[in-house]
């Protein structure tokens, strides 16, 4: 199974269960920044309408072995469910449940639909501004590189920097934003 086949299967499962969703992680970063490899397909799933994760998980059960133990993000306390493909290669699927976090809600409401020939279907993605804000908020080294890459490739002049600065101020990540911008050499 290729990573695009896995992504298509996950998104098809969401559609089949009428679960609103958005692809995040390396897919979104590569769409707006510098293409890089990944080990997983990350999808944010909307909680609206009950308990959507289990039916999606059930639809994927034949190809993905999900850990029954739900995990919590220590930064936001959002829920994450992790699975690994049963066949090789061992690709990971991470399903994040949308929750009542102002930024996550804003990011989800602003998502955009794009068609991917490789995945073979339409895909919902966050805006580049939201990718930058989220990556700066997570703040691991790889996240900070991803944020800088999106800022560099898109160009701050084309981005809604007021929106980015507003959320960075709320998340206490303004210094990270400054450092990411300062890390971009003159182009």
């Amino acid at each position: 199974m290729t990573v695009e086949e896995l992504a298509a299967a996950v998104l098809d499962a969401c559609d089949a269960e009428k679960v609103d969703h958005m692809v995040t992680g390396a897919f979104a970063v590569s769409f707006y920044g510098i293409p890089r490899s990944t080990k997983d397909v990350d999808v944010l799933i909307s909680l609206m309408g009950g308990d959507p994760i289990q039916p999606v998980v059930s639809r994927l059960e034949s190809i993905v072995d999900f850990d029954p133990q739900v995990q919590f993000d220590t930064l936001t306390w959002g829920k994450r469910l992790v699975g690994v493909t049963r066949q090789s290669p061992p690709l990971k699927v991470e399903l994040f449940e949308m929750f009542n976090d102002p930024f996550v809600l804003s990011q989800f409401a602003r998502k955009r639909q794009r068609f991917s020939e490789q995945i073979g279907r339409a895909t919902w993605l966050p805006t580049p501004e939201d990718v930058v804000v989220q990556k700066l908020r997570w703040g691991r080294n790889k996240d900070l590189d991803d944020a800088r890459d999106v800022l560099a490739v898109q160009g701050p002049e084309t981005l809604d920097m007021v929106y980015i600065e507003k959320w960075c101020a709320q998340h206490g990540t303004t210094e990270r934003l400054r450092a990411a911008l300062a890390g971009i050499p003159p182009l």
């Binding site: 290729t2 990573v3 695009e4 390396a26 897919f27 590569s30 769409f31 707006y32 920044g33 510098i34 293409p35 890089r36 490899s37 990944t38 080990k39 991917s116 020939e117 490789q118 995945i119």
Partner: peptide, 9 residues
């Protein structure tokens, strides 16, 4: 860019 990321992966 997305296609290249998938290929790289």
């Amino acid at each position: 860019r997305l296609a290249e990321a998938l290929e790289l992966t």
